[in-house]
């Protein structure tokens, strides 16, 4: 590797939340821009606080994983499913780490989770700036857009897979798993990918239903 890493990734581990002052975002609709800026700042701080891992190492490791899946499964469609499953299992665990370390304000609605994921989580774990777009009028669907993708830094899809493989599908799984742990059952899928020649990456997240917390019936209280 010729030069020092330009970008760095967040490792999933480290010290707890320090007692830094974090600006509380304003909840009113008028303060939406200020809200986004405040969230970006929270994401940036969480990114700085955490332990960093070389992005080239992460990109190559992830590339090797995808490559192996491509060799193991007959159809890129199955590879997408496997990546989603891997991501789901990461998400289930990662959400704990996120809640503990990010210092992000709680989400009051499903739509509010969009900004938190895009501004804080993407910054914190991937080191990229993402933004929210195309929010459905009833607030049950939104897209997350981001330009650079550290996972796909070196990848170039072979021609036959350009129409079928979503290289970074693991991110969709992470979002699905993480939101499920905070009582939102969602579907997440890639809509656009720079690797396929699109102008940006887009992940579409749509709410399936809100899960209810229930006391298990067979427990004695």
């Amino acid at each position: 590797m010729s030069e020092a890493p330009r970008e760095r990734l967040q490792a999933s581990q480290t010290e707890r939340n320090s007692s830094e002052k974090v600006p509380r975002p304003v909840a009113t609709s008028a303060g939406a821009a200020a809200n986004a800026a405040a969230l970006s700042k929270i994401g940036e701080q969480a990114f700085q606080r955490g332990e960093l891992v070389n992005s080239e190492l992460a990109a190559l490791t992830y590339g090797a994983l995808v490559r192996q899946l491509v060799l193991d499964y007959a159809h890129p469609q199955q590879v997408n499913e496997q990546l989603d499953r891997i991501g789901y299992n990461i998400g289930l665990r990662l959400v704990d780490d996120f809640l503990a370390r990010s210092a992000a304000p709680p989400c009051r609605s499903f739509a509010a989770s969009a900004e938190i994921i895009a501004r804080v989580a993407f910054r914190m774990y991937l080191g990229v700036n993402a933004k929210v777009a195309h929010i459905a009028s009833d607030g049950s669907e939104y897209s997350i857009l981001f330009d650079s993708n550290p996972l796909a830094e070196f990848a170039e899809l072979p021609e036959p897979m350009k129409g079928s493989l979503w290289y970074s599908n693991v991110i969709c799984g992470v979002i699905r798993g993480a939101l499920e742990m905070v009582q939102y059952s969602v579907q997440a899928r890639f809509e656009r990918d720079i690797l396929r020649g699109d102008d940006c990456n887009e992940i579409r997240v749509s709410l399936v239903r809100e899960l209810e917390e229930r006391v298990p019936t067979d427990n004695e209280i």
């Binding site: 190559l60 590339g63 491509v70 830094e153 070196f154």
Partner: peptide, 21 residues
């Protein structure tokens, strides 16, 4: 060659280089 070919996960060491980039 290093980032485009060597680090590309879909490139085999003995396969012809298809990378458009």
């Amino acid at each position: 060659y290093v980032p485009c070919v060597l680090c590309n996960p879909f490139q085999d060491a003995e396969a012809p280089i298809q990378s458009q980039r």
